[in-house]
Design a protein around this nucleic acid. Structure first.
Length: 519
DNA sequence: AGTGCAGTTGACTTT
DNA sequence: TAAAGTCAACTGCAC
């Protein structure tokens, strides 16, 4: 370093908000330029983060695409993105040697326990070094928010606020030689993570995805979201863009509502777009739980359930479930599809978790890691809240247990989806697609797939396994009479305030045939 | 036309 | 964003 005073800078720390539009930290930091403080946009690849059991190559793949585009946008403004590799504190220390870091700007991150702890360390570091860290709200999720009452009001207020305007220019930091390169990191690979079905990152992809959804693909959203045959096209597919912030949730909500108001839309469209709107609330509703209680990542929401499944983890069941070899065609098709594409519709995600938690009686922690790695749109807040809900450890909702055969018959009656992902069964017909083990051995031979040899035999009898799981829950609650009290307390703190449908008494004018007519 | 009966439908409850 | 069970009303049909 030269002997002259260090150049003052404001760092914009990019996390899961890879855009310049509606990016409050960037906009605020840009204002510092009037005070002679230059803006340094920074992304840090933290090796320890990428070693976590919920990190995977497909997350990094999406981020990489997004970083490339983000860098292009920033270069146009005048100062490209600095990508550093190492622990955040080391990177800050290093930068502090070269620059006078005056301020640090970022979004609030409702991440996993690792990022939570990392942020605590950064807070301490900033205090020690007298650097002001400005953290901006990233979603309709609020810090130090302990009372769920009026949550919707704050959510609406956040979404209605004006979007942050991207700065028109950033002054180049001449002393910094940024050569944009993305580091090679060794990552957990689910399978071929370069296939064309995995969604690409980047804001341009996000915008295109959004437009095609609200103007073309989304018309049948309400009717198509349940079946994996139709969901891939009719669902928004915005989830990874929301997770990694190539689009802001606020811009999505605002644009969506503008379109809902479009008077030329027919009722099908309106219904679908409104239904999508309500799901954006749920997105934040679930994230808020983990923001309020970070330990939901590792601990049962309802402490009373500690010990229910922990000691009985069946490794063979887990491997079969994880790889799509349970012998239940629809379950296996969903898992294999997810491994390949990084996405599944909500109902099928719930079914996979329901199956592992009830029929296979697996504690949710390791299945949660596996799914986190598979989901290209992994969002910790939604993930752990949903996993626990589908595992029955929240006590807030009653058990929602899916029947893998019924779902198969309902959502994929002809077995088109199954045959695509479980090609072993391509010659199976009729109901045998849903329950292949019921086919006679002769017909199995004729169909070129023998159950137990070419395709797995069901690892459990789902009817029997479910009966046992139910009984164990019942017994467990009997052993813990304070269950209802605890569930109620948890619900007060974290439950939705959405009013339950009131039971309206339907007054029917019933005229029985044997009654005398008054006329 | 009215009656008895089996099977279906839908609302509601339980797990 | 479940599924199975229960109960009563309803429907279609034979006589």
């Amino acid at each position: 370093m030269s002997s002259t005073a260090k150049e003052p800078i404001a760092i914009v720390w990019y996390k899961r908000d890879l855009r310049i539009h509606d990016h409050a930290p960037l906009s605020m930091a840009a204002n510092s330029q009037y005070r002679g403080i230059k803006v340094l946009p920074l992304y840090v690849v933290e090796p320890d983060y990428w070693k976590l059991p919920d990190s995977s190559a497909r997350h990094w793949r999406f981020i990489s695409h997004s970083l490339l585009e983000l860098n292009q946008s920033l270069i146009k403004l005048g100062q490209g993105l600095l990508v550093e590799q190492g622990d955040m504190l080391h990177v800050l220390e290093k930068l502090a040697k070269q620059f006078n870091i005056v301020e640090l700007y970022s979004h609030q991150e409702s991440g996993n326990l690792w990022t939570y702890q990392r942020d605590k360390n950064v807070t301490i570091w900033c205090l020690k070094n007298k650097i002001k860290w400005h953290e901006h709200e990233a979603f309709g999720v609020f810090r130090r928010f302990n009372n769920r009452d009026h949550w919707s009001y704050y959510w609406e207020r956040y979404m209605a606020r004006e979007k942050s305007i991207a700065p028109t220019s950033l002054t180049k930091i001449e002393s910094l030689n940024v050569v944009f390169t993305l580091p090679e990191i060794s990552l957990e690979l689910i399978e071929n993570d370069e296939n064309e079905h995995l969604q690409k990152g980047g804001r341009s992809q996000g915008l295109e995805c959004f437009s095609s959804f609200i103007f073309e693909r989304g018309k049948q959203y309400s009717y198509h979201m349940s079946s994996p045959l139709t969901a891939f096209n009719s669902c928004s597919r915005l989830s990874p863009h929301i997770t990694f912030g190539t689009l802001s949730l606020r811009e999505i909500v605002q644009k969506l509502r503008k379109q809902v108001k479009n008077t030329e839309l027919n009722t099908t469209w309106k219904k679908s777009l409104r239904s999508f709107d309500s799901r954006l609330h749920w997105h934040c509703h679930f994230m808020q739980k983990l923001e309020t209680e970070a330990l939901f990542e590792t601990h049962n929401m309802l402490q009373i359930f500690n010990g229910l499944r922990e000691d009985e983890f069946n490794e063979d069941y887990f491997q079969a479930w994880k790889t799509g070899n349970t012998g239940y065609p629809f379950i296996d098709a969903c898992m294999r599809c997810l491994r390949h594409t990084g996405w599944l519709n909500f109902r099928m995600r719930a079914m996979l978790v329901s199956f592992s938690s009830y029929q296979l009686w697996l504690h949710w922690k390791r299945p949660a890691w596996h799914l986190a790695q598979c989901f290209a749109d992994y969002e910790p807040g939604i993930h752990y809240s949903q996993i626990q809900m589908q595992s029955g450890t929240t006590g807030i909702n009653t058990m929602r247990i899916y029947n893998p055969v019924k779902q198969s018959q309902d959502q994929d009656p002809k077995g088109i989806f199954i045959k695509r992902w479980v090609p072993e069964l391509s010659q199976y017909f009729g109901n045998f697609i849903h329950e292949p083990w019921t086919m006679s051995l002769t017909t199995q031979q004729q169909s070129g797939c023998i159950i137990g040899k070419d395709y797995a035999e069901p690892i459990v009898d789902h009817i029997v396994a479910l009966r046992e799981a139910r009984a164990r829950f019942t017994d467990f609650k009997k052993l813990h009479p304070d269950f209802y009290e605890q569930a109620k307390a948890l619900n007060t703190k974290h439950g939705s305030r959405r009013k339950r449908k009131t039971n309206k008494v339907k007054v029917k004018a019933v005229i029985k045939t044997n009654q005398l007519s008054l006329f």
